[in-house]
């Protein structure tokens, strides 16, 4: 039962990553691309969690937490650069 749900989960999250890539390539403004990158990282966190369920190991949660933190910091850095021209004053 869980294997079917996991298969559906993997397909759905991979399709979501493909759609983010489409927006990353096509986005008319810079902020579209920043949003696409941030959403890609959050979808990758979902993928890591599902993979951890499949392999029945809690090994991957630290990497998911690290990716969440890095994506937040890098999005804030991009937006500060776009707003002020300098990341840390």
């Amino acid at each position: 039962m869980i294997q079917y749900a996991l298969t559906f989960g993997f397909v759905a999250v991979s399709a979501a990553l493909m759609m983010n890539l489409y927006r990353l390539v096509k986005g008319p403004t810079v902020m579209d691309r920043v949003l696409a990158v941030d959403t890609m990282v959050v979808n990758t966190i979902a993928l890591i969690i599902l993979y951890g369920i499949r392999e029945s190991t809690t090994l991957y949660f630290e990497s998911a937490l690290l990716m969440a933190m890095f994506s937040f910091i890098s999005t804030v850095a991009y937006c500060r650069f776009a707003l002020r021209g300098d990341v840390i004053e």
Partner: peptide, 30 residues
């Protein structure tokens, strides 16, 4: 069954969130 339901609902919402990125017309609505 509980785990399977949560995985399906979670993956569905992730898909819908990214589908909104493709479909909606302007950045603020995206």
């Amino acid at each position: 069954i509980l785990i399977a339901i949560h995985i399906v609902i979670g993956a569905f919402f992730v898909f819908v969130g990214s589908f909104g990125l493709v479909k909606l017309p302007s950045l603020m609505s995206r």
